[in-house]
Design a protein around this nucleic acid. Structure first.
Lengths: 210, 210
DNA sequence: GCTAAATTTAAACGGTCGTTTGAATGAATC
DNA sequence: GATTCATTCAAACGACCGTTTAAATTTAGC
């Protein structure tokens, strides 16, 4: 019976999480076996079930470990934006949403997060839906509200669509990094983020000139 | 020889393709077994290997059957655009790219295509890369050239990025149809496409006003 | 109608899968 | 030192996997 070992983190647990993370990213969930995970982690096969209960719960734990700080950072950035007195722009909101990937402490985060989010989004909906709803539910709503304040003339339904496409452009960057035929060095990722911001701000604002 | 028995009973080959298509869409490639496919198709298990050689080749056949008409339509629409004498706009190019999903004959296409493309794009790269390169290689290059003519002041590398994000927004629509909290009826898909066009044209042109 | 090729069939191949078991190990408590 | 309990371990469970085989059946050509 799993009893919460709140004491020092078990290194077995962490090694399983690390190995599962990199293998899930590379081959996807269904194509990654617990045997491959526990072998890479150099732990016994049964340890995975002992610590996580099931393969799906292991995936959820892998996802939560990385996404929780990002979601917290997004909420804090939005809090800070809303506390300031001057009205904020669409660009401000977009920057707040991407702030966890810009910050200095994002250095170790960027090693894994983009690939992981990209992979999770790529799994069949039956797998991802419980994960995404659990992790993203609150944040999306708050950012939609903020976007509505920055774009008061855009109907809410229309705004949801534009936010929808924005997520798509972001996922495309996270999954494939660079367009076909272009290489993106690890150091260029912030530059890629800047390009993403320009693109999605234009799409969100849609200041048609023609 | 197989007389055109197009009505009622379809061939073993087609029944396998149909069953594989819907199961791949629903559960993904790795999570779908050949036994599930051949059972749903009501054919013998070995028939899948007899007609297609391997599970991967079956996936390629499923993909090719649907994507080939789309790619052909995209090339024809671009041909028509380039034949006309007046210079074309970014919006013209985007419409040409999406034209196979607008046309009247797209009615039966829209039943499956969005889900299938979305699912293919969601598979691990090791699976999708051989498929996408085989099917999409030529079309992407020609559309990049056309976009460059419509946006002569944008450097080619920058244009590739914007096209990259555009694909992402399109995939997001194909995969999830509507944003969370909004429902999109089957008949609304053309309306969703119009919203997508507005969004990506703004992102591609990026006529910054601030 | 016979023959030969094309297709379908049942059965099995060797492996890998997620999960479970029960005993061995380790560390802390009394 | 004995007890307790969380953790690790080797081993096995039944199930399902993709693929192959060889015989049975259907189809087409003559």
């Amino acid at each position: 019976m799993p009893v919460a070992a709140t004491r020092g983190a078990s290194s077995t647990r962490e090694r399983i999480l690390d190995a599962a993370e990199s293998l899930f990213i590379e081959h996807g969930y269904a194509a990654t076996s617990l045997r491959a995970i526990t072998t890479a982690a150099d732990v016994n096969l049964a340890a995975a079930h002992y610590h996580f209960g099931s393969k799906f719960d292991l995936l959820a734990a892998v996802f939560h470990r990385r996404i929780e700080p990002v979601e917290r950072g997004r909420l804090e950035a939005l809090d800070a934006l809303e506390r300031q007195e001057a009205p904020f722009s669409v660009r401000d909101v977009v920057y707040a949403f991407l702030s966890p990937m810009y910050g200095a402490e994002a250095d170790d985060l960027l090693d894994v997060l983009p690939d992981l989010i990209g992979r999770i989004y790529a799994e069949p909906e039956s797998l991802t839906k419980p994960l995404l709803e659990g992790e993203f539910s609150g944040v999306a709503g708050r950012y939609l509200t903020a976007l509505g304040q920055a774009l008061p003339d855009v109907p809410p339904a229309e705004l949801r669509w534009r936010f929808h496409f924005t997520i798509g452009a972001m996922i495309q960057l996270l999954r494939f990094r660079a367009p076909l035929g272009l290489t993106a060095e690890r150091a260029d990722f912030v530059g890629s983020l800047d390009r993403l911001v320009d693109y999605v701000v234009a799409g969100l604002e849609q200041e048609r000139t023609s």
